[in-house]
Design a binder for these strands. Sequence first.
DNA 1: AGGTGTAGTTAGCGA
DNA 2: TCGCTAAGTACACCT
Lengths: 247, 247
Amino acid sequence: MRIIVATCSAEYSGRLNARLPYAKRVILIKADNSCLIFSELGSYKPLNWMAAPCTVKEHEVEADEAVHMNAIDVDDTDAAGEEHVPTRILEVAAAKSSDILTVTLYSVESDTTTDLGTDPGLIKDGVEDHLQRYLAEQIERIGKGARLVRREYPTAIGPVDIMAIDAEGTNVAIEIKRHGGIDGVEQLTRYCKLLNRDPLLAPVRGIFAAQTISPQARVLAQDRGFECLILDYEDMKGTKSDDITLF
Amino acid sequence: MRIIVATCSAEYSGRLNARLPYAKRVILIKADNSCLIFSELGSYKPLNWMAAPCTVKEHEVEADEAVHMNAIDVDDTDAAGEEHVPTRILEVAAAKSSDILTVTLYSVESDTTTDLGTDPGLIKDGVEDHLQRYLAEQIERIGKGARLVRREYPTAIGPVDIMAIDAEGTNVAIEIKRHGGIDGVEQLTRYCKLLNRDPLLAPVRGIFAAQTISPQARVLAQDRGFECLILDYEDMKGTKSDDITLF
DNA sequence: AGGTGTAGTTAGCGA
DNA sequence: TCGCTAAGTACACCT
């Protein structure tokens, strides 16, 4: 990993064209040559970047070249209109496309390289899969007397998240999302339409279950006769079994 | 911006729980306290992070505390099983939720702080909005004699990208995507279904326009009677008006 | 390798 | 602010 702190300007050309005016920024160049340019604000997304696989070419800017650049490049003026002289240029080019990120360095505050080695990687634990698992365990959340048929119930157009049978013996298809949007309702619609063609299953009720459901999705779901069920993750997690947290 | 190069382990607790085993990494702490942890690989997404608004608390680990931690914390062993002694702990806590990112530092290679100031920001040029703008300007790309009704034509279920009228006087709803997938076809389907209920508009044709269209989406679109239109961005950009690039 | 669906998505825009 | 949708999305999974 190479870490550069420098005033710079940058230009990206690829799917879109974007440019960064003259300012002080942090530039990371990783072992795979991928390049990230950060400012003080914003979330984890860099201002500009190049994804691997890519190559980095670097060259010093000669004095006469710098003069020439000043004549054609307008990004070398800071917010106050002051002009600056480029000293070095990084050309980061994508290997499989013509995407290119050109970073022009002016004043370099620091430029260090360190080898981080390979990372053992992130270990995750618990998102949508857990919602499905918990609801399967606590299937009576869809109604007293309900029984689980199976999770990931296979159909020709993909697996239904949960199939169950309610107290009246009616089949129930459940679509689970962390956030329920219109897409999810469409998905549930396709499943129910298909399942209802099977005389052994019909009628099949649909339940749209999510931690949050957008108003438009709720209207669409109800319009199509689906029940909406809000899932409380913490509640489900707490109910999951007789924990050691009984004290 | 504070830049730390150090061996560390980390733990995140929030929407999910995730942990990073002992390894050497780069840690950025931005002016808004947001924190990013990077390894040598992966795209621009950090291994782990905390988004602003958040607070950072830092404390040295006393020798006896370190011994205690070693007894309960299993992440202080490296890939070779060697144990390490924590020296410092960063607790990055979200301001509006109980999300917390705990970074345990072991050996610190460097720890520098620099003020980047406010960034003038990224200037973009050319994404979906531009595709829409260009197609609106060059509406005859959907057929000779076509006229534009309006961009972002409002309906109860959201705006149609472009409404137009073809040479025969038939209304045309156009859905524009950079890459056309099945979702886009579903979207166009909903719009056309709704618009066709209006006797003042019906019949309404649908056109699915994108720079690229997935084979499955194309089949689905054609199955639903929609025309598929490939948009050539460079071509549209070149046609946009009488440029100075005539030479 | 290409398609599909999720993301601790993030970012931008309009109501 | 809420809600929706695109993103130079990234990333995991599956065919």
